[in-house]
Simulated scan of single mutants.
Amino acid sequence: MSHATSGVTVRSNRDNDDSWERQMAADILGYAGKRVVVMGCFSGTGEACARQLVALGAEVHGADIRPSPVAGLASFTQVDLKDAASIEAGVAGIGGEIDALFNISGLPQTFPGEDVVTVNFLGIRHWTHAWLPRIRAGGAIVTVSSLGGMNYLARQPLLAEFMGNADIAAGRAWYLANAATAGDPYTLSKEAVNTWTQQSAPALMARNIRINCTMPSPIDTPMLDDFRKVAGDAVLGAFAKAKGRFSTPEEQALPLILLNSDAASFVSGVCLAVDAGLSGGLATGALNMQQMLAEAAAG
């Protein structure tokens, strides 16, 4: 490809390599040979993500509170996201520089509220900050949030107060003192993830590091039973209405892989709904939540 400027023909670098298009087609995601870390690879979306990254040729280092069944990991490190010392030891144990960080661990509301906000946000933030000096230029971070956090822009004053607690202990203490005002801990934690993602993007881009998150609708994993205990079948059924079924772990893992890939090199600060059009339908009135709840309750 070329173009003329002031009578001079300027040729792009692509013309110097006739195989550029073939190379991009063969490895458009660009994971071959890259060093990545997956937090939360014991089961569900995290397990599916780690398996696919191994298949794509990445050097995959897994971390979780329980051992991962994924074959082909370069290493596995046990990390408790409720414990700052465990987090820091985990980062040091894996060591070295990385190209991409996948934050996929999470807890539902069936756990104590202070643990939910810690694992889903406070611990993930501490873990990510511990990795930042080791993330190479051109690297990327992606975190799993939730549709449960989609109202984050309406709660910025409360979220600023919660997120202003710089460490895990202070954040847990704040939640315990403000639980009644903060509301559902899962919702609070995911709203914080969305806010943190977008707030962090400009400063990280100055270092050529991208950060994004996804907001899944309910996923068909063992954790779905925990959400069923809290929300009930009618609510879960309504959230499955757009597609007519729940998402699979693989359907959530692949967008995470895309966001951290070379194919998304100009994407940062995005909270991507991965919900088969549910949130878009609700936002524009194409779907009606009250009607969907009534239909789901009626079976």
Rank of each mutant, 00 (worst) to 15 (best):
L132D: 13
V79K: 00
R136N: 13
P133V: 13
V116Q: 00
E114Q: 10
A84W: 00
A74T: 05
V117N: 04
V117F: 09
E88P: 11
G90Q: 05
A92P: 13
H129M: 15
A130E: 10
A71F: 06
T118K: 03
T77P: 11
P67F: 02
V70T: 04
G106R: 03
I124M: 05
E88R: 14
R136T: 10
P69I: 08
A140P: 12
G123Y: 02
S105R: 01
H126Q: 15
L101I: 01
T110P: 09
F111R: 02
G139Q: 09
P108A: 07
T128L: 12
L101V: 05
Q109F: 08
A130Q: 11
I135W: 02
P67K: 04
S68C: 03
R134W: 14
I104P: 13
L122G: 00
R125D: 14
D80E: 08
S75D: 07
F121K: 00
G90V: 02
E88C: 14
S105G: 06
A71Y: 07
L107N: 00
L81P: 12
G93Y: 07
A140R: 05
V116M: 00
D99Q: 06
P108G: 01
L73G: 04
V117K: 06
G138P: 15
L132S: 09
R136I: 08
V119P: 01
A92N: 14
Q109V: 04
G72L: 02
R134F: 14
R136L: 11
L101C: 02
A71K: 09
A71C: 10
T118L: 05
A89R: 15
R125S: 12
F76K: 07
G96N: 06
A74W: 10
V91N: 09
L122F: 09
E97V: 15
V79H: 10
G123A: 01
D115F: 05
I104A: 10
E88M: 14
P133F: 08
T77A: 14
E88K: 12
G90A: 09
L132A: 09
E114N: 02
R125M: 10
A89P: 03
N120W: 05
R125K: 13
S75C: 07
F76Q: 05
I104H: 10
L122D: 02
I98P: 07
D80I: 05
A130H: 09
V91I: 14
E114V: 06
T118P: 11
S75G: 00
P112H: 07
Q78P: 15
S86W: 10
S68V: 07
A85S: 15
S86C: 10
D64V: 08
V117Q: 05
A84C: 13
N103P: 06
I124G: 05
P67Q: 01
G113D: 06
D99N: 06
L132Q: 13
T118N: 01
G93E: 11
L122Q: 07
L107M: 13
A140V: 14
I124N: 06
I94N: 03
A100E: 03
I135A: 01
P133K: 13
T77I: 12
N103S: 11
P67E: 08
E88Q: 15
V119D: 03
N120Y: 03
W127R: 03
N103K: 02
F102E: 08
S75W: 06
G90N: 04
W127T: 12
S86A: 07
R125P: 12
W131L: 06
W127Q: 09
P108E: 11
I94L: 07
D80C: 08
A84S: 15
I94Y: 02
G139H: 00
P69H: 01
